[in-house]
Computed example of a mutant assay.
Amino acid sequence: MTNDNSILQSILSYSKSQRIGIVLLFTIIIICQGFYFFCDFKTFDDSGKDKANWLANQSVIDSLKLLDKNYKPKIYPFNPNFITDFKGYKLGMSVAEIDRLLAYRKQNKFVNSAEEFQAVTKVSDSLLKTMSPYFKFPDWVKNKKEYRSKYAKNEIPKTEKIIILDINEATKEDLMKIYGIGDKISDRILEQKSKFGGFVSMEQMNDVWGLSPEVIERLNKHFVVKSTSTIKKININNASVKELSQFPFFRYTLAKEIVIYRSMNGDIKIEDLTKIKGFPVDKIKIIALYLEF
């Protein structure tokens, strides 16, 4: 009670203007609190209504377009050979008609006229009448006669007769006429021929560095081995180690093995070649043509 009296005395001790200010302050606080509790501060978004109205209007416009008899979707010229499922559906074709066309195209066949298109797809006359004005075929289909006469007269290349030459008599110029053989490779072929005195088989082209299988195939079409009179033959039973080692297919180690085998078993016959240590068996048929027994 004493505390309440002291508070009251302290308030009464304020001046009149101070007491009025305190009362006004409490009044303002009460008004603000009431405004906060009783007023709705929610914001309203009208964009949803606008969007809904716009969509509704657009639907009306679309439906009016469909009802308008004069409105037609624009169709551009197209090649009927490349109609897709979606394109065929838009043009009014049934699934079965589209499938017939796609099955025909899978056979790598083409329709070249509206009549052929109908024969393949079995579309009705009415649908063909609406579609065919937009068919666009290649120029050569439209002007077959013109293209045939053009190619018959001017464009069909004449088959050039291949002249087959002896590889052992071929010059550098002859070799360079083959597509894929240039200056250096032609020199390598002639150098290889010089080592042996001549080739005994076209298989020896595989030993020329830089010749691809495709170029070797072209060589085989234009050259063959005809004459072998110039080749350098070596007597395997009389030649020394040095003479044997100078033969392109032999090395010094193999030359020694040949002489050792010869000294231990007598004269070498062609069937003995496979018994010699280190002998290149894979080339025995070619090597044998350079040897004398």
Rank of each mutant, 00 (worst) to 15 (best):
F137K: 04
I29D: 12
F117T: 10
F82C: 02
F249S: 12
K142V: 05
T2D: 11
R105M: 10
I189C: 07
F78C: 08
N168P: 04
I162N: 00
S245R: 12
F247L: 09
L67W: 04
Y290R: 04
L190N: 01
E115P: 00
W54S: 09
F117G: 08
V208R: 09
S186P: 08
Y104A: 05
L55R: 07
M93V: 10
F38P: 02
V208Q: 01
N238R: 10
I284E: 10
G21K: 15
N70L: 07
P157A: 08
A56G: 08
D50A: 14
N112V: 05
F37G: 06
N79Q: 02
I30D: 07
D50K: 15
I30G: 13
D4Q: 14
K51C: 02
G210M: 03
F86Q: 13
D68I: 00
Y71E: 07
I216R: 14
D272R: 00
N265F: 02
F110S: 08
Q118P: 00
T121W: 12
N81R: 12
T2A: 12
D85S: 10
F44A: 04
S132L: 07
L291P: 05
L289D: 13
F78V: 06
L102C: 00
K136A: 11
F249N: 03
K145N: 11
I61M: 06
S227W: 01
K275H: 10
K122R: 09
M202I: 13
K195H: 06
E155S: 07
N237L: 07
Y71H: 14
D166P: 06
L66K: 14
T27D: 01
K172F: 04
I189K: 05
N238S: 09
A52Q: 10
I83L: 15
K177D: 06
N154G: 08
N112D: 03
D166H: 04
V259F: 02
A56S: 13
K226I: 06
N70K: 13
Q118T: 08
P77W: 09
I7D: 05
D62M: 08
I163L: 13
V281F: 07
L165W: 01
K153G: 10
I22Q: 05
K51Y: 09
D174P: 07
E116N: 01
K129I: 02
S124Q: 00
D187S: 15
K277W: 15
L219V: 08
G266A: 00
I75P: 02
E160H: 06
S186G: 15
N154L: 12
Y76N: 13
K177C: 00
Q118R: 12
Y104V: 00
Y14A: 04
K283V: 03
A114R: 06
K122M: 09
I284N: 02
A170G: 05
S10N: 14
N206L: 04
